[in-house]
């Protein structure tokens, strides 16, 4: 099946969604996603950030779709023409979506541990406005502990349901879900039950905002002061392939390895995440690549494949691969 997204053509299998097709192309034209997580079944369709315009439904039916569609849950059709960044309508809609997501999201980025690697921060920086149209107070909840090592700031939650799917799919016994409806809905462990499953820590990684954070890393440092390194260890429960965030020779926190779309490559167990904070526990492979756009790249330098050399005959500078 041939799909055209922002004038780039790509061949995909039947049944793929527009978002997956865009991710296959990669780069800037991939719509942002706050709730969709390719590793979690049933996720997506909630946050509406991935809205795109379908300018041509298929080769057979060249009419455009009447409304913007959520690219994470719309399957492609042969000959479909999709507009993401090339459509001003989409940019405008996304601006509105950001405003809605921020309606109840507090402005506590200076305090929040997620700041610097937060999807909502990136999204509002990319598409949002710098002021709000509402005067109402944001909803407020007390900060609670979910289990021993996870802190829940319900204030910051955008109700993407990723953590609920993680708890339901990754672990055999779900003790964690969403209570109530609409404006008052909140993430909760059922009747105060702690999440004790060995993989429960992954809800921290899937959370696009700072609602679920690591208690062992709470207020320890800011992510841009740390250096993410690929590391692995022998683990009986998970693959043991993680990213350790180091400050000097100390490990401040352990997370899964996130790919360019902010999704972890492999889920890791709680033992790796919360208990192994000693350098000797890990075999460090090397620094992880950080994109230039990220604040984490500040003061982190990567060896460039290009190098400048002085040509001795001409006396000029040249760049060599």
């Amino acid at each position: 099946m041939k799909v055209t997204i922002d004038n780039v053509q790509v061949e995909v299998e039947d049944g793929t969604t527009i978002l997956q097709a865009a991710r296959k192309i990669g780069g800037k034209l991939v719509p942002p996603a706050m709730c969709y997580y390719s590793k979690l079944k049933g996720s997506g369709g909630k946050c509406r950030t991935c809205l795109v315009k379908v300018a041509q439904s298929s080769a057979k039916d060249p009419r455009p779709m009447p409304k913007l569609v959520a690219s994470c849950s719309t399957p492609v059709q042969d000959g479909m023409v999709v507009q993401n960044l090339t459509s001003p309508e989409v940019i405008e809609a996304r601006k509105g979506v950001v405003e809605f997501l921020l309606l109840n999201h507090p402005l506590d980025c200076p305090v929040c541990d997620q700041a610097g690697e937060c999807d909502l921060q990136d999204l509002s920086f990319g598409y949002g406005m710098d002021e709000t149209a509402t005067e109402e107070d944001r909803r407020e909840f007390p900060v609670i502990d979910i289990g021993e090592n996870i802190k829940l700031h319900m204030n910051r939650c955008i109700l993407c349901y990723r953590c609920v799917y993680t708890a339901g799919q990754l672990t055999d016994k779900r003790l964690h879900g969403v209570m109530y409806r609409g404006d008052v809905s909140e993430i909760s462990t059922f009747i105060g039950n702690a999440v004790t499953n060995e993989f429960s820590g992954n809800v921290i990684d899937v959370c696009p905002v700072g609602a679920l954070t690591d208690k062992t890393f709470r207020f320890k440092s800011r992510v841009w002061f740390l250096k993410p390194m690929n590391a692995h260890r022998e683990c009986s429960k998970c693959a043991g392939k993680t990213a350790v965030w180091m400050f000097g020779n100390e490990i401040y926190r352990v997370t899964g390895r996130k790919d360019e779309f902010g999704e972890v490559e492999e889920f890791i167990c709680n033992e790796c995440r919360f208990e192994k904070k000693d350098v000797n526990d890990w075999i460090i492979e090397g620094p992880r690549h950080i994109t230039r756009q990220s604040v984490i790249s500040a003061n982190h330098y990567e060896e460039s494949k290009k190098q400048s050399v002085i040509n001795p005959i001409e006396g000029t500078m040249e760049i060599q691969e």
Binding site: C109, P110, A115, R222, W224, F225, A298, N299
Partner: peptide, 14 residues
């Protein structure tokens, strides 16, 4: 001050 670290990351002299 809430130790957000933005001054430190903005500081050109570290």
């Amino acid at each position: 001050c809430t130790a957000c670290g933005l001054c430190a990351v903005a500081c050109p002299a570290e």
